[in-house]
């Protein structure tokens, strides 16, 4: 095992640790007067996704966050941050509402993946994610997503089709968990550390692959300046997006260019 291998998997461990800031911490740290809105109006209220209205300084915004919880009890209640289809449908309802009232949308993503269960399949997990991907691509209001911990596959992407995507320094973003990858490829989930290195899932990797715009440094994460810094960035970027008459075209092209093969460049 080489040094690089250890590093990628160490970041996975940090990203998963229960001591990290969760969605609620970011909402409290950045916004004022958060008011939570519940339910997808179709089936239920998903406890893994929190959404609502808040002030970003002077401006009302729609905030959506995947919440994992800090301790065992909270984590059980939040389904370990694994949303059911109703969670994605609630998020979409709030985004559509934001579009109607011309509010920007800010998403905080922290999930090991969409919930894996019988009920989730019966209620169309795949469809729920697919609909979010489609609708977010044409949502006519600025959308910014920040990956704060784990960015697990389709379950994370369903809140990350945005104009700007940022990752915290110790967040990860991956198509499959390193354990899952190791067990499929090498029939051995204990090789997760090797898989983590192969998958290029750290914030630095995502930046160099052109998947995200910026890495948010965690050097001052335990100080109040940290949230102030994120707040300032959000305000500046929303202002820039508001001025962009081609915002939706740019959002489309942002994803369109990823994975163009050699012949197409």
């Amino acid at each position: 095992m080489n040094g690089e291998t250890v590093e990628a998997y160490d970041i996975v461990r940090i990203a998963r640790s229960s001591g990290r800031y969760t969605g609620i911490d970011f909402i409290k740290g950045i916004f004022n007067h958060f008011f939570e809105l519940h339910g997808d109006r179709r089936f239920a209220d998903d406890s893994a996704i929190i959404g609502g209205l808040a002030y970003l300084e002077e401006e009302p915004v729609t905030v959506i966050a995947i919440e994992k919880g800090h301790n065992a009890r909270e984590r059980m209640q939040r389904l370990f941050g694994a949303p059911n289809p109703e969670g994605y449908r609630k998020a979409l309802r709030l985004m559509k509402q934001a579009e109607k009232f011309k509010r920007p949308v800010i998403c905080f993503v922290d999930t090991s993946g969409a919930y894996c269960g019988i009920g989730a399949e019966e209620r169309g997990q795949g469809l729920a994610i697919a609909e979010n991907l489609c609708e977010m691509m044409t949502l006519n209001t600025p959308v910014i997503s920040i990956l704060i911990g784990e960015g697990g596959s389709g379950g994370a992407l369903a809140l990350s089709v945005a104009d700007r995507v940022y990752m915290l320094e110790n967040a990860v973003y991956s198509v499959i968990s390193p354990e899952g990858c190791a067990s499929i490829l090498w029939k051995d989930s204990s090789k997760a550390a090797d898989a983590a290195a192969c998958l290029k899932l750290t914030a630095k990797d995502a930046l160099s692959l052109g998947i995200i715009e910026e890495v948010i440094s965690e050097s001052n994460i335990d100080q109040p300046e940290f949230f102030a810094g994120v707040r300032d960035k959000l305000i500046a970027e929303i202002a820039a997006l508001r001025k962009d008459p081609e915002m939706l075209e740019h959002r489309y092209q942002r994803f369109r260019r990823i994975g163009r093969t050699e012949q197409q460049k």
Partner: peptide
């Protein structure tokens, strides 16, 4: 193909 594959979901959905 890692994240590049994942992003194809968004790309195809957009189209």
């Amino acid at each position: 193909e890692g994240l590049v594959s994942l992003m194809q979901m968004a790309k195809t959905s957009g189209a």
